[in-house]
Simulated scan of single mutants.
Amino acid sequence: MLDTDTRTAPLVDEDEPKGRFNRRRMIRVVTILTIGILAVLAVWQDPLYAGH
């Protein structure tokens, strides 16, 4: 019979704090948002249907 009452620790990097907010996560989110905004602006500047 398996003992399912044990709980394992979550897998996190040792250098990351266990809190929700940290600098690495903020930089990652800002980078993803910036790339997304630049991609949308690039499509708006040169839409694919402009050549027809």
Rank of each mutant, 00 (worst) to 15 (best):
F21A: 07
Y49E: 10
V40M: 06
I27P: 00
R28W: 06
T4A: 10
Q45T: 09
V43T: 08
Y49H: 09
R23Q: 12
G19N: 07
I27T: 08
L11S: 12
V43E: 04
L41G: 07
L33E: 01
I32P: 01
L33T: 12
T6Y: 11
G19I: 00
M1P: 03
D46P: 00
I35T: 03
V30E: 04
F21D: 10
A39V: 10
D46L: 12
T31D: 00
Q45S: 09
I35W: 02
F21E: 04
L11M: 11
V40K: 03
R7H: 13
I37W: 01
M26R: 14
D3A: 01
V29E: 10
A39I: 08
T8H: 14
V29A: 12
G51M: 10
A42N: 02
V40C: 05
D15C: 07
L11W: 12
F21P: 00
T6E: 14
F21C: 06
G19A: 06
A9G: 04
K18R: 15
T4K: 13
V29N: 11
L33M: 11
R28A: 09
D3L: 06
R24W: 03
I37S: 01
I32Q: 09
Q45D: 08
V40A: 10
L33A: 14
P47T: 01
L11H: 13
L41N: 02
K18F: 04
L48N: 11
E16W: 05
E14S: 15
K18P: 01
E16I: 07
V30M: 13
L38F: 08
T4F: 12
N22S: 07
L41F: 07
M26H: 10
V12R: 14
R23A: 08
A39W: 01
P10H: 04
I37G: 01
V43F: 11
T34I: 11
P10C: 07
R20A: 06
R25W: 03
T8M: 14
L33Y: 02
L33C: 13
I27D: 13
D5I: 02
V40W: 03
T31W: 01
V40F: 04
L2E: 15
A39Q: 00
W44P: 00
D13V: 00
Y49M: 04
D46W: 12
R23F: 06
Q45I: 06
A42M: 05
N22T: 01
R23I: 04
D46F: 13
R23L: 11
I37L: 12
L41R: 03
I37R: 02
E16C: 07
R28L: 03
P47G: 02
T6R: 12
D46E: 09
D5G: 14
R24T: 06
E14C: 03
I27C: 06
I27R: 15
T34A: 12
R28Q: 08
D15Q: 11
Q45E: 04
D15E: 15
R28Y: 08
W44Q: 10
V43R: 09
T31G: 05
D3Y: 07
D46C: 07
T6F: 07
L48S: 11
N22P: 00
D15N: 14
A39P: 04
G19F: 02
V29Q: 10
T31K: 08
